[in-house]
């Protein structure tokens, strides 16, 4: 993972959007986030996270069979950031795929990667977002400016034995609510918070319960739920819906804000560094599209 060093506090945001620090924390659970410098690109963040992941996995980029970069905040146009990331990792023929999807992108990429390893070998999945550029492209809107942060996470998905084994996954999309959360560089980020939260509070627990039922795993046997870090209130709501203690839903949204498609892999990286893998783990995300789903993994025995 890689987080830009500049910490943006609620005090700084509050002053710019005419709100109070307390209001920001109450509605989001966010105390601070990281914003990259103006010169930093999505590819810069992605390369830093990729290098950290490869170093920890003790493998070289040359051994990768594919790279997938999930990002909803890369600059419009082509090529997407994946080709640049691959080139900067020293690769000149490894396929590099963009998943231009906000929030749920790294979950979709993880699921795709888990199905692709038998053909391609090791797949490096990266979620990288510079949401500050999305926010700063237009006058700040208090309802969105308080939420988002920058950062990148990465995970190596391999057919070889690793720390976790992917057991099953479910993915879903419903474009009928595509206007509820949408952005292009020509106009400000649009978010119908009521609609998004109403959908997310149903779809996240539903996808998690679906994949657990398919795997015949009881919700109480899952020690940790690694979710897209959208909003602390939403994470608590998902825990309540699942009937699990809120501390089982990992949270770092208070420190990093909502880093869109990067957040799932950042959460996974932080959690796995701090905790031994014990019991099945759920990855789950929901985002603009709408796209949502869940992945069930367990420690490799």
């Amino acid at each position: 993972m890689y987080m830009p060093p500049r910490v943006v506090t609620n005090a700084e945001i509050a002053a710019r959007v005419d709100r109070t620090e307390e209001w920001i924390e109450n509605v989001s659970g966010i105390r601070e986030r990281r914003w990259a410098d103006p010169e930093t690109s999505v590819a810069d963040l992605a390369v830093a996270a990729a290098e950290d992941c490869l170093s920890r996995a003790e493998i070289s980029a040359a051994s990768l069979g594919m790279i997938i970069v999930a990002s909803g905040s890369a600059r419009a146009g082509f090529p997407g950031p994946a080709a640049e990331v691959a080139a900067r990792l020293g690769l000149d023929s490894t396929p590099a795929l963009d998943v231009p999807m906000a929030s749920a992108g790294s979950l979709f990429a993880l699921v795709m990667a888990s199905q692709m390893t038998t053909h391609f070998g090791d797949v490096l999945v990266i979620g990288a977002e510079k949401m500050s550029a999305v926010l700063e492209a237009h006058p700040l809107d208090p309802n969105t400016a308080i939420l988002f942060g920058d950062g990148a996470g990465a995970a190596l998905v391999s057919a070889r034995p690793g720390r976790w084994e992917v057991l099953d996954s479910v993915l879903h999309s419903d474009g009928s609510f595509r206007d509820a959360l949408a952005f292009n560089w020509n106009s400000p980020l649009r978010m119908n918070g009521l609609s998004v939260i109403l959908q997310a509070t149903r779809k996240l627990p539903s996808a998690i319960e679906e994949v657990l039922a398919r795997g015949n795993v009881a919700v109480g046997d899952v020690p940790v739920f690694l979710l897209h870090q959208a909003n602390q209130n939403l994470l608590m709501r998902v825990a309540k819906s699942l009937g699990v203690p809120s501390e089982r839903v990992y949270s770092n949204v208070g420190r990093y804000g909502n880093t869109s498609s990067a957040s799932l892999l950042i959460a996974a990286a932080e959690w796995s560094r701090e905790n031994p893998a014990a019991g099945p783990v759920i990855f789950s995300a929901f985002g603009a599209g709408l796209h949502w789903g869940a992945l069930l993994a367990r420690p490799r025995e």
Binding site: G193, L194, I197, L198, R237
Partner: peptide, 16 residues
């Protein structure tokens, strides 16, 4: 009920 502040975004799922 939303514009009047009677319901917020997290009360709506509870209501439904």
């Amino acid at each position: 009920l939303f514009e009047s502040g009677l319901l917020d975004s997290f009360a709506l799922p509870d209501l439904v």
